[in-house]
Amino acid sequence: MRRSEFTRAVDAEFGARAASVVADLTLGGVGHRTAAEALADGVDPRDVWLALCVEADVPESRRHGVGMREPRR
């Protein structure tokens, strides 16, 4: 997952709250850092996305593939 895909996934899942969730929610899965801190520290965006999904109780059906670019035609 690229950083841009992470951003699209967070926006799609959390809407207007996306920026706040990334900046404020502490994620146990990435060392009790916020998503913003984990990304700044070089943690893979997919690992941050999955930790965010766990912490925010995002259903498994919405954890994979969200935020991915549409295939080229």
Rank of each mutant, 00 (worst) to 15 (best):
A18H: 02
A35E: 02
D24F: 05
A36M: 10
R2Y: 11
G29M: 08
D47I: 00
A56S: 15
R72S: 14
G15N: 01
D24G: 12
L25F: 08
A35P: 00
A38E: 05
T7V: 14
D41P: 07
A19Q: 15
F6E: 02
R72T: 13
A16D: 13
A56I: 03
H64V: 13
G28P: 10
S20K: 08
D24W: 02
R33S: 09
D57F: 07
M1D: 06
G29A: 07
E13M: 14
T7Q: 14
H32I: 02
W49R: 04
A12V: 06
G31W: 04
A9W: 04
V54S: 11
E70L: 14
W49M: 05
M68L: 15
F6C: 04
E55P: 07
R72M: 12
D44Q: 10
R62K: 11
G15K: 02
F14A: 06
L27M: 01
A9L: 04
S4F: 06
R72E: 13
V66F: 10
T7K: 11
E5N: 10
L52K: 05
A36N: 09
R17A: 09
H32W: 10
G65D: 05
T7P: 01
D47E: 13
A12F: 08
A38T: 04
A12N: 12
V22G: 00
G42A: 08
